[in-house]
Simulated assay, not measured.
Amino acid sequence: MSERAAVEIVTLVISPVHAYEGRPSEGPRPDPGPVSRERVEVRAGLGLVGDRYFNHRAHRQAAVSVFAAESLDDVERELALASRLDPSFVRRNIVLRGFPVDGLAARRGRRGAVFSLDSGDGPVRFRAHRPANPCAWMDVVLAPGAFRALRGRGGVRCVPLDDGALRRGEATLTLLPEDS
């Protein structure tokens, strides 16, 4: 039996380079081009076309990261921020609103969940593998205290199981049976 949820794909991010490396006090490297996209191409077992982790052997089980926009809402409240945080700054590939994605990751002896996202071009399946832990850069690019506030809710790292496309906007997330 499948569980379905109406979600919104808030942001799609392709990062051609790793902008958050080195010391946070030195600031991020400049991005070579636009980061947020309206549409992304997904390739089974490889990741998102154009992303720095696409077809990298070391990242095959973690090529795509998915994040819940509600986690940023929580950080804004906890840190009493006066302005909204930009979801593209967490550098997760897919930012969703409407589903608790952190629960999809593999936990002690349990495989990660299989789920699909369909934003109108057909469903694309993913297997969640491990949590996408935040880094100290979050204190620099989001707000002081964001690194600690995001612990345990930094999203999940996944492998795509299908080729397809995703678009920003309304979508359906379907939690699939284990054997999918």
Rank of each mutant, 00 (worst) to 15 (best):
G112V: 06
D74G: 11
G22V: 03
D74A: 14
V124A: 03
S116I: 05
S71V: 06
N133R: 15
A149P: 11
F126I: 05
D102A: 00
C135E: 06
A113H: 14
Y20F: 00
L142W: 03
N133W: 06
C135Y: 09
Y53R: 13
L46Q: 14
S83D: 14
M138P: 01
V35Y: 03
E26W: 08
R108A: 04
P87T: 08
P34L: 14
L72N: 08
V141D: 03
R108L: 01
E78H: 10
R110Q: 07
H129K: 11
C135V: 09
A44D: 06
L96V: 05
H129I: 02
V101M: 11
L150M: 15
L85V: 07
L150K: 02
E26Y: 08
V114C: 13
V66Y: 02
S88G: 05
S71M: 13
L96C: 09
D121M: 01
G109C: 04
A146C: 08
G50L: 11
A69V: 05
R60A: 15
L117Y: 10
D31V: 10
A136L: 11
G155P: 05
D102P: 00
P131M: 11
C158H: 06
H18N: 07
F147H: 12
V95T: 13
D102S: 08
P144S: 10
P123K: 15
V114F: 00
R97F: 10
